[in-house]
Write a protein that binds this DNA or RNA. Sequence first.
DNA 1: TCGAGGGTTTTTTTT
DNA 2: AAACCCTCGA
Length: 666
Amino acid sequence: MAKKYVLKRVNNAGLDQTKMDEARFTINYSHLLNTAQLDAVKALYGAYLVIAGAGTGKTRTLVYRVARLIESGFDPKSILLLTFTRKAAKEMMDRASILLDNRCSKIQGGTFHSFANLTLRKYAKSVGLDSGFTILDQGDSEDVINLIRGQLDLAKLKKRFPNKSTINRILSFSVNTGKKVSDILAEDYPHFAEYINEIHKIGDIFSNYKKKNNLLDYDDLLVYLKDFLLNFDAGAKGLLSTIKFVMVDEYQDTNMLQSEIVRGLTQINNNIMVVGDDSQSIYSFRGANFKNIMEFPKLFNNVELIKLEENYRSTTEILDFTNHIIDSAVEKYPKHLYTRKGSGDLPAIISTKNENMQSKFIVDKILELREEGVSLNEIAALFRSSYHSFDLEIELNKANIPFIKFGGMKFVETAHVKDVLAFLRIVHNPKDVVSWYRVLLLHEGIGPRKAQNILEELSAGNLNISSNPEAVVDKKYSDNIYNLFLFLHGLFQRKGSPTEKAEEVLTYYQPLFKCKYDDFNKRGKDLEMFINISTNYRSMESFLSDMALEPPRDSVTDVDETDNEREYLTLSTIHSAKGLEWHSVFIMHAIDGFFPSAQSLQSLDSLEEERRLMYVASTRAQQNLFISYPMHIFDRIQGFTFSKPSRFIAEIKEDLAEEWLLEEDF
DNA sequence: TCGAGGGTTTTTTTT
DNA sequence: AAACCCTCGA
């Protein structure tokens, strides 16, 4: 008798989901994960919202899910993992590779912006872009706005007009949240409300300017990507048919624009998993709203909610402390974090006489910890604003404690590095007026006016760098302009690696550099490092994109790439410490006015965000948590002021932390 | 029109 | 302490 076969529908990977036998996997998932984590890892099709409290193994869960999808036979390239930094994406891919095999490093991963960059270059035509577009970083955008601002006749205005960074912030916030500029002004900048028309005008000119000159700022990257996806033409369909699974990390910090991108990405394969924690939402200034994460179920059908609540990071004492901080939040979604990690020391709240005593305390305590066998790599000092660590940095240097600082001014944001980049950007995109302007102003005898004239000649085609300057650069221009064009023409024609070109720029730039900066000796190190970094790149395009999107961390204090073995302490803004953890954590400057910051005291919403910031900071600690505040601190405006401890720690109950008072003779 | 000098304000956080 | 704005002499 002939056997009867029943044809069952199988999924895309050719495997029947219900029949999938755990034994076929090389990784023993059910042993290595808790129930909730396992639910998330096994999830296959559909939409999932994973609410993952601090330290509940969020990264671990994502890593295992990647491994499992790949083990199930899905093409790594069909998995897209959007993270907050590319470092986070890379770390996850590395961990998954160790877990399973090298296929895991083949998934697509990165930030929304870097994904937008790659996609838009690839599909430039269908978006109506030139694929050689240049990315404007925040400083570049501000420069353009300043230019436009200068052209408007603002002298006639009686009252102060917002400066470039404020204008940029307002316009950008509008793009990211979808709010009207007038509403933003009314809510956050009532004192500028009367300038609504001027701001709109600047916004319009700015947009046209960017379009005309092949420039995209951070927001444009997202807007163009969103439009590309939602227009859903052949190009977008082609792209989306290759993406089967989308995962988004740190979803609480995405904004409306980004959530539309997520929607756009899942139009064909409705498989989406977002992971986040509303209590750790700390990017409202970029348009994120902690409530967005709970709006997610409205975006997709049948969203399954998974909650990770077992904390694997901190001791009971630390967890009790951090739970208390977030319990006082005015608005939050219920969750109960618990730990089985056991008991340790109570968190300590340390008041010191002044800022320097605080630094000395931290240095001393670090040395003590090191005596006890805690590696410097396991220790971090966290602060609200980048400048809060200046005094500590001095003391660390005195004590010979190596450190790396995260957050704050980045290496590529320093004026001299931007100068060098500007030359390279012109050669790569001769329409990059922002860089042109910067480069022109470097030269003696050229101010805003003459630079404008030259820019006009450039856009009219009377001047260019593709032909020999003999032919195009008129006699009426000074020698240094002729020489500039000669140099750029040479560089434009030359084929060579980013490093070779950067070295040529440096040679040309050297005299200008020494003339512009008194402290050129100190800054010179950055330029050397810039050359060093360039050696990692073979294409100018990826080099320039990376410098704008994922620039290297720090300039002076940064150690060599080869120095990975060395131990170092981490100094970091709380924002840059997101997602990380250490054995021992110091939180500095816990003073009202510093943390929470003075600007946030005005509104409840921003105060609540400061609270979440304190929550993020304190949940980074595994074993030891030290929160310090100086009782006297120098305030540039008022001189010495007596300061109160941060309201977040002042409200802590006695049994949750012990208080230390540091005597003067330390 | 450039660029130096002086007086004033300003301050988070990041892609 | 640095960034910004305005004024004024060359």
